[in-house]
Design a protein around this nucleic acid. Sequence first.
DNA 1: TATATTTGATTAAACGATTAATCACTTTGG
DNA 2: CCAAAGTGATTAATCGTTTAATCAAATATA
Lengths: 353, 353
Amino acid sequence: MNIGRPPATMTEIAAALGVSSATVSNALSGKGRVSAELSAKIRQAAEELGYVPSHAARALRTGRTGVIGLVLPDISNPLFPQIAQAIEQAAAAAGYGVLIADSRGETAQQTAAIGRLIERGVDGMIVVPRRGSRIGDIGTPVAIIDSPSTPGNTVSSDHRNGGVQMGRHLASLGHRKVLLIAHSRESNVQNDRIGGLEAGLGKDIRCETLWVGDLENSHGAGCALGLAARVADGFTGFAAVYDLLALRALTELQRDGVDVPLQASVSGFDDLVWSSVVMPSITTLRQDLATIAECAVEALGDAIADSQTATGDPLVARQNREGVPMMLVARQSTGPAAGAVVSAVSNAREDSR
Amino acid sequence: MNIGRPPATMTEIAAALGVSSATVSNALSGKGRVSAELSAKIRQAAEELGYVPSHAARALRTGRTGVIGLVLPDISNPLFPQIAQAIEQAAAAAGYGVLIADSRGETAQQTAAIGRLIERGVDGMIVVPRRGSRIGDIGTPVAIIDSPSTPGNTVSSDHRNGGVQMGRHLASLGHRKVLLIAHSRESNVQNDRIGGLEAGLGKDIRCETLWVGDLENSHGAGCALGLAARVADGFTGFAAVYDLLALRALTELQRDGVDVPLQASVSGFDDLVWSSVVMPSITTLRQDLATIAECAVEALGDAIADSQTATGDPLVARQNREGVPMMLVARQSTGPAAGAVVSAVSNAREDSR
DNA sequence: TATATTTGATTAAACGATTAATCACTTTGG
DNA sequence: CCAAAGTGATTAATCGTTTAATCAAATATA
């Protein structure tokens, strides 16, 4: 590659070969009618001259920039790196660039950020909504990654089934009294996970949900969750709805002298970076973000294509795919319930308590 | 805003006012010679018609896209959300969009990602290098955020002084035997922090550095650090070089029944999201990422402007600014050394509710 | 053989903003 | 009073690509 030189243009290739620039365009895009030989020659010349298409010119002519926006209203979300990585990868494979938008969690800033993306001419955007906030019609194709139970959702993990998996995992370890730890009642994702956990645990198991958001409203952010008292109260399982809460639970229990996993099991969701590094490492559910990103980009691409032709169509990319499965990653933070007999294979022996 | 309508163009404004499009361009950019009255009228018409400049057309004509690339080779870095947020904010304020590049930590992918950015016509890029890797001349202006001791560095936190602050903090708490926990000897940032810690602790305090990277090479990733043994050996302070290591240290100590901060103090760097949420919350040093991002964007903007005029100039943005100060955030994970007399000076607690 | 049809290429007009060159008028200056 | 300078606008070219319209020549059809 000849770095630093202004890259060759179609016109230059055309001049070098004595053909018209239209023919070069046709040959390179494979659209018009160009003889096979000439096409090959052009392609070769392009290679040799180090041709790089001008995105700006193409965008001006076609009205499409080949760029999509990524909107993470809650950018402080620790899952962000993984999502961004997955989206960027999928977008690059589909020929898109990814422009990021940030809103510091505030709605006003979010609107401004989206506006900036639109002014920059993004062809569409992928939005991971904040706690069930709705995205109105913004005149641009949108793909939404939230939860299968969200109306207008394009693609997402099967959070409910993830909950079921974790519920079964805890149940199989003999836990009979489990505390579910969530933050906000308004989050579709959290509700789905809670629902799944309850289903997976089954009706024989006592469970209760601790809403940390409510607790913090009265006791201040970062307050203690009082989990040691729960242990004293007979709880042996603590299933958090995302890893940050699991970490909070784990450290609080440890600080208060509760051994994990001997006296209590802790689990989370999302497999964030620290989950595998902490002692004990945290049992969690990993999202298949690569697949989700691919689906989102693909659906968005379709919506973009549609928006070119039929106007007035719904600009929200729909996808009838089932929720993408989550994967249980069993680590050290979950183990047999204290004083319980674990049914390794069958549930023939009920309990000994 | 009239959403959905194709936005007005300069030509349309010109037609509506019966002037030429050149005049409109001049009025809106303030460059040519336009009478004050006409200029005002044009500006008003632009407002009323909902004029939105076409970035594509402008890019085609001027050769500048108004977009910069953000390259985080180690995208799994948990600091990424904060960096991305800060850069996006600063870039937006300076009129730039931010295109992200990902490389999954692999050098080959990094080159490809940078290539994609260049093909997309970014005006420049901001790079946070991975563990002291060098960025070669890529024919595009670059700003580098790494460490003051890195050659070619544009702007960064004063990691060394951060280390000094933390060292003094620990010293003032009476710790006499401190274990410094780092990962890689190749990281400039980590070396700076280690150096600062040693200086801040002073020569009266015994300290030793644990290189987790070395340890993992022989014992496997995620292995135990053996910190409880260190406590038995008289160590009371554990100063990690970033929060993820601090968290690892904290949980390992807790799991092994060491009380933090009663028996041992733990500290980190970066103030990542979990540091304030964990029990006990982690004493750490916060980077002033907003300032860093502003400096980086500004320096990059200058380099971009330079690259337009003088060719052959160094394309790496230099900035003679001192390292940006870091801020000590004292939390619960550090306290007086077991059995030590504390000098009652620096005990400003963030959360002494 | 005269007329369609197909093939392979060219022409030229966009897309929307920027900008050097130009022009018609005033205003100044000597 | 006439040349020089200044003012406020217009003209027209340009950036690089796409694409509808056109065209010439070869091939097929009647």
